[in-house]
Nucleic acid binder design. Structure first.
Lengths: 221, 221
DNA sequence: AAGCTCAAGTTGACACTGTCAAGTTAGCGT
DNA sequence: ACGCTAACTTGACAGTGTCAACTTGAGCTT
């Protein structure tokens, strides 16, 4: 939080735009867009989605209320920008998990489910935003958001195909459909925890275990 | 919508509070609480959660901005009131589905999954409210809400136990955990549709089929 | 070097929100 | 007939997203 903000400052310092090293009298901010994203993400994770307001954000960054509008069409576009980065993170996690070749397929499958729900639970507000209707319903998602989210979705289908090949699921089944059900399951469990309906976080691992078990009792591997 | 509102009016007419049949000069509304719930539900289903504002609601009911505060502590309490009725509906659907004794267990299981997702899809805004963090997170749920939601949750565990007894799932497995995973799956799929991430509604049935298949390939029945 | 352009930043304003405090109305039981 | 009190009212406040109109200043052209 303080660190990430510091990194932005360093980044700013490197830009040719800055006249001198001291940050005084900076009518032009330098890289306001990036700073807004970073600070907004901080606010999101600290106090939740409904606490993120453009005005508070602007004042926290030290800029006027309407300055953000020169970098984001509206609030929704800003939120899409935050979510974008979230999808890159999640995609990264999935890629890492599928590369662990020392593990058996079953173990990798367990790892996927576990890591996914862990990510959601570690970043509840970000996850809420990434998969919430705020940014998806009514065609409100940005093009850039879709560009970062769709590869993440597709990767999950690809993983499912791999699991099918390795005998975890029937190869004849439609991979997209299987993946949609699997994703539904992890998404649903994650949401029920995040939204406060499943309240006992200490049972997360146990529930993941059961999810794996229910899907794999009949697998060949 | 028009019907439900009419019913309320009829209800009002029956109340001794009303001085005369014509609805003029009604400083005291009669049954404002119920009317607010009905009209708010209409607004919710017509235009979505974020379009429901106390002020619009009040003006639509024909009452001053702050009148609702004499029947609901705050906006959250009103929303909880709406959700309450939703849970009673859902509970009813589950009860009906489990009573169809002509069907086989497998068919009843399919029926549960299908009906659940159908309910969510037919009442997307209501479902969003019922299971959203708006009313659940931060201890914001009303006592009355919990009184209507918990039985609904428990019924799903009871159904799971029944399915275990009938050989659909291992009897030795913890029913609560199995039910949590099953519910996670239907909830997740429902949410992904409602929130606009799964967009092709014509594939709902197919996805339900796969969900059932993935869970039941190893069942004894 | 002077001047122009145009993105980046500014203030003021508007309509909307939830909610509180203080006042008014009228139905009920005594 | 009279008050009590729940139900309902208006006024006010702080907060929101967003638009229109204005200012600033960095960088290119001449």
């Amino acid at each position: 939080m303080t660190l990430s903000r510091l990194l932005v400052r360093v980044f700013i310092a490197k830009l040719p735009v800055m006249k001198n090293i001291e940050e005084k009298s900076k009518y032009h901010h330098g890289d306001l867009r990036e700073t807004l994203l970073v600070v907004a993400t901080e606010m999101l994770q600290e106090s939740g989605l409904k606490e993120v307001s453009l005005r508070k954000l602007a004042s926290r960054v030290g800029v006027s209320r309407t300055a953000p509008y020169h970098h984001f069409k509206d609030k929704n576009a800003l939120l899409c920008g935050i979510a974008e980065k979230g999808f890159e993170q999640l995609h990264q996690i999935n890629k890492c998990g599928s590369k662990l070749e020392k593990l058996s397929v079953k173990e990798r499958f367990y790892r996927f489910i576990h890591d996914y729900i862990q990510f959601a639970n570690n970043n509840p507000e970000l996850y809420e935003l990434m998969f919430g209707r705020t940014i998806w319903k009514d065609e409100s998602s940005t093009l850039e958001l879709r560009d970062s989210a769709y590869p993440c979705f597709q990767f999950q289908v690809a993983m499912t195909q791999e699991w099918q090949k390795q005998g975890l699921f029937n190869v004849d089944d439609n991979a997209l459909r299987v993946s949609q059900v699997l994703w539904g399951t992890v998404h649903g469990i994650a949401k029920l925890f995040i939204d406060g309906i499943y309240t006992d976080n200490s049972k997360i691992d146990e529930i993941c275990d059961y999810a794996v078990r229910l899907f794999l009792t009949n697998s060949k591997e």
